[in-house]
Amino acid sequence: MKGRSRGKVVARFGLLAALALILSWLESLVPAFFAAPGMKLGLTNLVVLVALYRMGDRAALGVNLLRILLAALLFGNGYSLAYSLAGGLLSGAAMILLKRCGRFHMTAVSVAGGLMHNVGQILTAMLLLDTWQLAGYLPVLWIGGMAAGLIIGLLGAELTRRLPPELFD
């Protein structure tokens, strides 16, 4: 905590939000090559994970929200905002709770986060389109979310271990 100035915190926060935004944009360029709508790796969750483990709950939530709002403004619309908000908030809440209970490592926390992201999105789609029919996509998105969360979690664990601690204090 020593030597921590407000300016430093703001700068770091902005840096992380920008990084998340860039990853968001990169991912939007990759054509959907998976079996279900909305299925992707969720690279931005890497930034959220690192923020969660190195800077705490509020920073993770803040970076996530800022990224979602900016991404929707820059390359999305009202619908995409609803989807990413539901996914981001549900997965963020799940990861914060699981991390807080202190029994799980980062990788498992990320797996649950990836899964809840997809659950949030499919629930939003069901609400917006007013149909239960989308439940048919649940299995694919369930496994896909867990797999994506696993990959991001392993990367995130490696990242938090290797990034210099000076970056975050």
Binding site: Y53, L98, R103, F104, H105, M106, T107, A108, V111, A112, M146, L150, L154, A157, T160, R161, P165
Partner: peptide, 16 residues
């Protein structure tokens, strides 16, 4: 943080 070498424990396996 650095001391925690283990990255995937029994609890994690149970959760997943």
């Amino acid at each position: 943080m650095e001391a925690k070498r283990k990255r995937f424990g029994r609890n994690d396996l149970l959760l997943v």
